[in-house]
Amino acid sequence: MTGAGRLSLLLARRIAMLVVTLVAASIALFLVLDILPGDPALVMLGTEARPDTLAALRREMGLDQPALVRYVTWIGGVAVGDFGISYTWRVPVASLIAERLAVTVPLAVMAIVLSTLIAVPVGVIAAAAHGRTLDWMIVSFAQVGVAVPNFWIGILLVLGFSIGLGWFPAGGFPGWQAGVGAGLSALILPSVALALPQAAILARVTRSAVLEVVGEDYIRTARAKGLTARQALWRHGLRNALIPVVTILGLQVPVLIAGAILIENVFALPGLGRLIFQALGQRDLIVLKDVALLLAGLVIIVNGLVDIAYTLIDPRLKDRLA
């Protein structure tokens, strides 16, 4: 078989694996939520509801169907982009998710941008100062940064910047219709709280990635061509060191979204994380299923893409195949 043929076979296998994992995740999710105690109809109708009223509502929501039918209806809908209607909110789940993403996505993006802007220069500086006091200090700070819980950072930021200085709102989100400025200002503290521990991790990765490339041949060649150590590092080292950094960054996207669940609750932001909380508290199982599958799907797909990208890029792997 040719190298290209084997490569496409490998890719096909990876993609098939991806689909199998996604389906398995959806089944696991459905089963777990199915045994969850708590009757959505009872939650919606409250303590005075009579049994016939509850039964009528369950029929209306399709909860009287057998599990297999409900699973197929749900997953079939999701496959064609129909996420169903929320039990409690009575609006299409897709629009509910879209509204909440309008908070969570900017939050995650701001956190990623912020952590990259902090971590990459700091990591490179530490590598350049390898073994000296500056390096030691940066590494120590990074250690502390990894150890600090992000919700505590959130609380401290509120204490300092909203209660103390009154610069930013302590929580809540005015909505984008209140103006981009007001919206962003509500997201600044949460994104900082989210970004700092991420920055610490990223700085460590950057530092070791740079240190690793410094030992490689082309840096030595560059230096032989008359570049100073620092020039060689910035011109050649950085670009190569960025590959692992970008990978980590990609893998951190779902982590950030998960971290947003906690932070959105600290800051009372109406994002995806808050939606999960509300949906669980109200047994809005359809919302819960959709959001959880969305998040899990994101992780599975990102991981799969990283895998596939490695298969395509990794020269050693190609050589072996050829």
Binding site: M110, V113, T116, L117, W167, F168, G181, G183, S185
Partner: peptide
């Protein structure tokens, strides 16, 4: 990327 941050900061300050 720097420009994005600058925009964010400016917007944030304006909001304040």
């Amino acid at each position: 990327m720097k420009r994005v941050l600058a925009a964010v900061v400016v917007a944030g300050l304006a909001a304040v």
